[in-house]
Computed example of a mutant assay.
Amino acid sequence: MSAQDRIDHESLRVICQALGGASSLEVLADNMNGLLTSTLGIKGSTLFVLNPNTRELELLASFGLSNQFLNKGPVIADKSLAQAMEGQSVIIPDTTVEKDLQYPEETHAEGIKAIVSLPMLGSGEVLGVLRLYHDQVWEVSQHDHDILLLLAENIGLAMRYTRVLNALQSIWDIVSSLPDGWERF
């Protein structure tokens, strides 16, 4: 399959509106996975968040993939398409010839023929990865690659923003529940 653009201006507008309108990290992740899967016409999508203590990529949300595939085992950041953890995109247009998959048997059993892994950055730090899975060999166009990279970065920024908002809301809730007179201290 030759590389063709799959993301047009209208699709990008809808995706960006969903990105900006999310009320929580989970809603953001669910919206992004569903929209990207349908817009790109691919098998599925996942958002993983890096656990800095274990160096595992923890599943935040997924769309289009089986529970068996999602529960295949821990996704180790330094073993699973590790270049994404260095801030680089990883494109595997054909998994049948790729030798560097952490779970090759499970990938093939799931019917995944192509993977795109993009770093989600927040303030220059890799917070996790956006992974796109296709059931066909997939040559990603440069146009779509550039948009997906920007989108992954914006998801990272939205994740950081959502975390800050949630922390501020928790602080506000605590301060609001203090008895009268405590606010002076």
Rank of each mutant, 00 (worst) to 15 (best):
L148N: 04
L127S: 12
L130D: 07
V90K: 00
L132K: 02
E125P: 09
E110T: 02
V137H: 12
T96Y: 14
A109C: 09
F63G: 14
P104R: 02
V116S: 15
F69N: 07
G122K: 04
G122L: 00
K99Q: 11
P74E: 12
Q83G: 07
H134L: 03
K79M: 14
K79S: 09
A152N: 05
Y133F: 12
Q136G: 07
V90P: 01
Q102V: 01
E98R: 11
Q142R: 10
A152K: 00
Q83D: 15
A84K: 00
D100C: 08
K99E: 14
A152T: 05
E106M: 10
I147F: 12
H145W: 09
E139F: 09
V116T: 15
E153V: 10
Q68A: 13
G111T: 12
L150R: 14
L101N: 08
S62W: 02
L81Q: 01
V137W: 05
P74D: 10
L148V: 10
I112K: 00
P104N: 08
H145Q: 14
I147K: 13
G128L: 00
D135V: 01
F63L: 12
E125R: 15
I91G: 04
A84I: 03
E58D: 15
L70N: 05
Q136S: 09
E86C: 09
V90T: 04
S80H: 03
G64A: 07
V97F: 04
L60C: 13
T95A: 13
Y103N: 07
G128D: 04
S123T: 08
L70T: 05
L148P: 03
Q102E: 11
E86G: 10
G111M: 13
S117M: 10
E86F: 07
L148K: 02
G87Q: 05
I147Y: 06
E98M: 07
M85V: 00
E125M: 15
Y103S: 12
D146W: 11
E98P: 04
A61V: 13
S66D: 07
P74N: 07
P93W: 08
H134M: 06
A84E: 05
G73C: 01
A61L: 03
A114N: 11
P104V: 08
I92K: 04
L121W: 06
P93A: 09
L60I: 10
R131W: 01
G73Q: 02
P104H: 12
L70E: 05
S80E: 02
G128K: 08
